[in-house]
Design a protein around this nucleic acid. Structure first.
Lengths: 231, 231
DNA sequence: ATTATCTATAGATCTATAGATAATGC
DNA sequence: ATTATCTATAGATCTATAGATAATGC
């Protein structure tokens, strides 16, 4: 029953950071399911349990909130992936293989979602939506993802020195599409396969994707080789 | 200067159909760029040059308009692709190859966008967005696309009789992701490749995708084979 | 007569902000 | 004193509909 002022649990800076995190988490969840325009600030406020005005206090507007959701995680996974590709290249002393490059690029990203919990997987869903939004998707991706992608392109060139850049870039587009479809987790494969496969099973994807994509690149290379010999 | 009543150019039924087409075209264009929630009926009315009330006269609400945009073309390309796969299987007398099945499935779809003009390519962009929308995307795709997808799965099974269904379904997911990324035409590959490749160049995709994906499936099969021998 | 189209508007949001109040921090 | 949070609300949409008017069809 003492009335001494209790020590404040959190400093203002901490409180500020925590509340922003909470808002970002709620926004991340909702944007993941419905996209930028499918969510209102009221929806976010309700989800988080705060007032709409508080969201405006911390974030300029809805688009700024959306951008910050992406900017919170993009550099994390991007950094991990670049580090993994650097480490891979160093470990093989320049003798880069398709499988090696793709495992570093893809598995490192998938691990973020496998180990990062639901919040990370929500972020991945937003990425998949953004990657398919013609009007402004490509600008955001360029800003956030160009370094990690160009690093992969470098490695792919080293693994396939005789393959024209066009083939490498189109192949990258296929890889990227497959990865985004995985991140979207729409449950479509669950229905198609009658419950045999699950959208959320990123381990199953990790066990197959790099191998599959390496085989794809190799098939393109072989096709070029055959053209060269016969033409 | 004669005042005789001129013959009506279009019957009511024709006028009705034409105006609905115009509205669907405008809606298709806008939904393609911004998605369902990024477009208002006012936007569509302005784009088409009619009053908002007229859109309500022909379509129940925004979602119904969106659905009809998809239902106008989905059965067309779906039918073509199934016919192409049927014809392919008949032509090889059951000796199905990965390349053959994938060419029938992928190239037939790409041809619709190559030959169908901007309207068809807009439809493709919407499909890509829907395919990555967790909340309701998978229901729409199931309803519109299941027959053509299960037909492909059948052919893939015949081409790889020893490969487990899991591998086939995950491989299908990669194929589908790559195709959707192509349909999205965000311009990302243009920037990444410094103008070497163009999002709109579906011929370039057609020249590579079936080969790439067949190589991917083959790599997965080989991996399984090696596991069987060593394990 | 029936159908197509427009005018006008109700009612429901939604974003954003001003200003009040409550909670920390020197 | 400063910062966090809430109350209240302005102003701008947006969807949807009722009802009037114009254009076809028997």
């Amino acid at each position: 029953m003492t009335k001494a002022t209790p020590k404040p649990r959190r400093s203002k800076a901490e409180q500020r950071a925590e509340k922003q995190e909470l808002i970002l988490n709620g926004a991340e969840l909702l944007f993941a399911k419905r996209g930028l325009h499918g969510v209102t600030l009221k929806d976010v406020a309700k989800e988080v349990g705060v007032d709409t005005a508080l969201i405006h206090y911390y974030f300029a507007d809805k688009k700024a909130l959306f951008d910050q959701v992406l900017e919170r995680r993009a550099p994390v996974t991007s950094g991990r992936r670049i580090a993994a590709m650097d480490a891979y290249e160093a470990s093989v002393g320049g003798k880069v293989t398709l499988e090696g490059a793709l495992h570093a690029y893809l598995d490192t990203d998938l691990d973020s979602y496998i180990q990062g919990g639901e919040a990370w997987r929500n972020y991945g869903q937003i990425g998949a939506l953004v990657a398919h939004t013609p009007e402004w998707g490509s600008e955001i991706l360029s800003r956030l993802m160009d370094p990690v992608v160009t690093r992969l392109i470098e490695l792919l060139r080293k693994a396939m020195p005789d393959t024209p850049d066009e083939d490498i870039f189109w192949g990258y587009q296929f890889v990227s599409g497959a990865l985004m479809m995985t991140l979207a987790r729409t449950g479509r494969i669950d229905k198609l396969s009658n419950g045999l496969c699950h959208s959320d099973d990123f381990e199953a994807v990790k066990a197959r994707m790099a191998t599959f994509m390496a085989g794809g690149f190799r098939a393109i290379c072989d096709q070029r080789e055959r053209e060269r010999q016969s033409g």
